[in-house]
């Protein structure tokens, strides 16, 4: 087992958390914006969830 220096280990941990938050955040932003774009084209009565 490779024993890493404390600072180096934290940088890997930071990378993992950064990548995860970035991916999920990016996908969520894309999804919500596309939802608004598509929702705008759809008549309100078809958007059964927003009543």
């Amino acid at each position: 087992m490779v024993v890493l220096a404390e600072a180096s280990a934290w940088s890997y941990v930071g990378l993992a958390y950064g990548v995860t938050i970035g991916l999920l955040g990016g996908y969520t932003a894309w999804m919500l914006r596309r939802g608004r774009k598509i929702g705008r084209q759809l008549p309100a009565e078809d958007r059964t969830w927003s009543s």
Binding site: M31, R36, K37, G39, R40, A44, R47, W49, S50
Partner: peptide, 20 residues
Amino acid sequence: SPPTGTGAGFMRLHPDGTAS
């Protein structure tokens, strides 16, 4: 679209979005 959102502040929903 007519404003569909109810509530205010955090609970205010975007009228065109996919939120409920």
